[in-house]
Simulated scan of single mutants.
Amino acid sequence: MTNTATPTRHRRGFLRIDASRAADLIYRARLGQLPDLALFDVRDRRSFEDRHVDGAEHLTEAALGEVFGRVPRAAPVLIYCYHGNASQAYAGMFADFHYAEVYSVDGGFEPLEGALMVREGERRAPALPAEASAALVAFLDEFGFDHDNLNQAREHGLTPLMRAALLGRPDLMEALLEAGADVSLRNGDGNNALWLACVSREPAAIRVLVAAAIDLNNRNDVGATCLMYAASSGRPEIVEALLAAGADPWIRNDDDACAVDLSSTVECLHLLRHTAR
């Protein structure tokens, strides 16, 4: 799933996000990649009972004290209302109570419901083909992945494709993609498989994902891209490969920094300095 829309950070500390990004958070929670997500509907009770997002809890101002005492401060909080106005007021209150990750959904319930329907429609559960290699079978078994769902997330929200990317195994990645593994999925931190391939420092793994049309500019839950990661971790060969593939160097993270601002080595700075604006 493409995730290039830039969220707006409110002065009170919460983030305003669009329906697509909100749907992605909810979808990942349903896959077990964001198990602590707290989802709140702040419309009136009748509207909530008539129709609401599965897993949402109805919330009123009167119930805030109880919620603050129950929901951990480290849990991500997602709030929607009718059109995106009341949810900002509630999000501000959560931020005031030192919740570190609070989201208000721009546009409210209707766009969010529509985005979730699209996201669920994209969902696939490809199974291991009968002709799969012994190496792929052994890999799935080693990490406890389900043969009947090659998009299943396990530890740290990693799917088989992400795990293979982290190991720097382009052979396994190609086999998984050929079997139908979803290249758009993101882990519990909002990173796609390309981020894990950058961690592995295996250029061939990066090339496999680029050929599969992975989102080069995916922004994770703090707005960071793979290019930012490569620059900040001092990996000039990865910076060069991502730039050659078409990664956007001008994207800014939630702290308003772009890749060149985060460069930790002279080599990375040299590669990115011409991209500064």
Score class of each variant (00 low, 15 high):
residue 41 D to M: 12
residue 242 L to V: 02
residue 124 R to A: 06
residue 62 A to T: 07
residue 203 P to N: 10
residue 184 S to F: 07
residue 72 P to M: 04
residue 203 P to H: 12
residue 161 L to P: 15
residue 242 L to I: 04
residue 109 F to H: 11
residue 173 M to F: 02
residue 65 G to N: 12
residue 72 P to G: 02
residue 104 S to Y: 03
residue 21 R to N: 14
residue 136 L to N: 01
residue 6 T to P: 00
residue 110 E to R: 14
residue 168 G to K: 02
residue 175 A to W: 09
residue 257 A to E: 11
residue 165 A to P: 02
residue 192 N to K: 01
residue 176 L to E: 11
residue 207 R to F: 09
residue 94 F to G: 00
residue 69 G to Y: 06
residue 259 A to K: 05
residue 211 A to R: 14
residue 60 T to L: 08
residue 237 E to D: 09
residue 230 A to D: 14
residue 152 Q to I: 01
residue 48 F to Q: 13
residue 43 R to H: 09
residue 131 E to S: 07
residue 190 G to R: 07
residue 22 A to Y: 01
residue 6 T to R: 12
residue 30 R to G: 15
residue 22 A to W: 09
residue 48 F to Y: 15
residue 72 P to T: 06
residue 99 Y to W: 02
residue 107 G to P: 00
residue 7 P to N: 12
residue 219 R to P: 00
residue 93 M to F: 03
residue 175 A to V: 02
residue 164 A to D: 04
residue 73 R to G: 07
residue 217 N to D: 15
residue 98 H to A: 14
residue 86 A to K: 05
residue 224 A to G: 14
residue 110 E to Q: 14
residue 75 A to Q: 02
residue 42 V to G: 10
residue 47 S to M: 11
residue 43 R to L: 07
residue 26 I to D: 05
residue 78 L to C: 12
residue 119 R to F: 00
residue 144 G to C: 03
residue 131 E to P: 01
residue 152 Q to V: 05
residue 179 A to Y: 14
residue 171 D to V: 10
residue 35 P to D: 11
residue 254 D to C: 00
residue 272 L to T: 08
residue 270 H to W: 07
residue 142 E to C: 05
residue 105 V to I: 06
residue 161 L to S: 12
residue 154 R to W: 00
residue 168 G to C: 09
residue 221 D to G: 10
residue 29 A to K: 14
residue 206 I to M: 11
residue 136 L to S: 08
residue 36 D to M: 01
residue 173 M to Y: 01
residue 117 M to E: 13
residue 107 G to S: 03
residue 26 I to R: 03
residue 89 A to D: 08
residue 193 A to W: 05
residue 190 G to D: 11
residue 233 S to F: 15
residue 268 C to A: 13
residue 94 F to K: 06
residue 195 W to A: 05
residue 227 L to E: 10
residue 27 Y to H: 10
residue 121 G to I: 00
residue 203 P to Y: 11
residue 277 R to C: 08
residue 198 C to Y: 12
residue 241 A to M: 07
residue 75 A to I: 09
residue 245 A to D: 09
residue 137 V to P: 00
residue 97 F to C: 03
residue 8 T to R: 06
residue 213 A to N: 07
residue 259 A to S: 12
residue 155 E to V: 01
residue 244 A to T: 12
residue 96 D to A: 09
residue 162 M to F: 05
residue 199 V to M: 13
residue 25 L to P: 08
residue 200 S to T: 04
residue 229 Y to G: 13
residue 186 R to A: 13
residue 104 S to G: 00
residue 31 L to Q: 15
residue 217 N to H: 02
residue 228 M to P: 03
residue 257 A to Y: 06
residue 200 S to Q: 04
residue 117 M to Y: 05
residue 234 G to Y: 05
residue 250 W to N: 04
residue 10 H to N: 15
residue 50 D to G: 12
residue 100 A to D: 12
